[in-house]
């Protein structure tokens, strides 16, 4: 009897429950400025930034089979571009953030010509090396604080609000807007003809190419798709910290290592995975904040444990029970 498929009603309830949780989380995120204080909003901003970055890395590694270890380069470019626009050219922060995204996209154009000559592990190392080059160059640009970095002018902070709470609310709402656009945009991308190509590449690259999927164009498209979102995250982070520096803005640990942890733990190759992974990461970070380096050791241990139990992450475990995606990207067959 256990081999029989569950009746539709049995699987329907967890799906509805899962979707209710997602809607509740979005509602909570939207209403957070009216419910919490400045500290919680700053934490929320970090959460949304990391979620956006995880979503983008998941798209690259989980769907397009691009194992990038250098996405922090676009975050750094976004941060430095934001500083240049807001501090040096006195552009309003609300305008400087999308412009920083565009500049990150422009920076990605020459990068693809270098890194897309490589594949697999070589591409991973290649992206890392290019990111390091970006970081070293950023530390040598006059007017940007050179190797030690520099702070944003007070006028930039004041443009975001008169009080600390006003500023926290403004920056949080910007991070929320970027995260929602990234999420909805990626969902629409995966539902499109390009999305089905990405899912096919994820499952079997050779068969996908033999069935008409242009591997080069699809991969390039995804890589370029992620760059502006990463750039905007960099800009928002610079605005939140009111500071840029080569090591922090191009932080490999913060923006690539932890993001890989998030996606691997949450569930690579799904839209639900990055959300679950970011929640788990922040929960562990909060719980282990007083334990110093044990924090990193536990993160590593949790990663290994999850990969041993289910290499496709916590979402794959849950999905087996639920039976279908909570955030659906599949194409249903017409009814017979």
């Amino acid at each position: 009897m256990t081999d029989l498929p569950l009746p539709p009603t049995s699987r329907h309830a967890p799906v509805v429950f899962g979707r209710t949780i997602v809607i509740a989380l979005v509602a909570l995120a939207v209403s957070a400025p009216w419910l919490t204080d400045a500290n919680a909003l700053q934490l929320g901003t970090q959460f949304l930034c990391l979620l956006t970055v995880a979503l983008m890395w998941n798209l690259l590694a989980g769907y397009a089979d691009i194992l990038s270890l250098g996405q922090h380069m676009f975050i750094g470019v976004g941060a430095y571009a934001f500083y240049g626009l807001a501090a040096n050219l006195s552009v309003m922060p609300h305008i400087a953030i999308p412009l920083a995204g565009i500049i990150a996209l422009l920076a990605a154009l020459p990068v693809v010509f270098v890194v897309f000559r490589l594949r697999a592990a070589y591409l991973a190392v290649g992206t890392w090396v290019v990111a390091e080059v970006f970081m070293l160059v950023a530390g040598r640009i006059p007017g940007f604080g050179l190797g030690t970095g520099t702070s944003l002018p007070l006028s930039t902070a004041k443009a975001m609000g008169a009080t600390a709470l006003d500023r926290a609310v403004s920056i949080y709402l910007l991070a929320l807007a970027v995260a929602l656009v990234a999420w909805l945009g990626t969902w629409m991308l995966l539902r499109s003809r390009h999305g089905i190509a990405l899912m096919a590449i994820r499952d079997n690259e050779e068969a996908a190419s033999s069935l008409g999927v242009n591997l080069i164009r699809t991969r390039l498209g995804v890589f370029l798709w992620t760059a502006p979102f990463l750039g905007m995250v960099g800009a928002i982070t610079a605005l939140q910290k009111m500071r840029i520096s080569p090591t922090a803005s191009f932080g490999f640990l913060d923006w690539t290592v932890f993001v890989i942890f998030i996606v691997v733990i949450g569930g690579i190759g799904s839209l639900e995975g990055p959300l679950i992974g970011t929640i788990v990461y922040f929960a562990l970070r909060y719980a282990l904040s007083d334990y110093g380096t044990w924090y990193l050791i536990v993160l590593g241990g949790v990663s290994v444990a999850v990969m041993l139990v289910e290499p496709r992450g916590l979402w794959a475990l849950l999905r087996r029970w639920i039976g279908e995606d909570v955030i659906p990207v599949s194409h249903r067959a017409p009814k017979q």
Binding site: A197, G212, H331
Partner: peptide, 20 residues
């Protein structure tokens, strides 16, 4: 070489969209 995580319908849909 199936697209293992996609449905049977999506496997053929991909070929119809991108191949044809």
């Amino acid at each position: 070489k199936p697209f293992s995580h996609m449905t049977v319908f999506e496997n053929t849909l991909l070929a119809a969209v991108h191949g044809a």
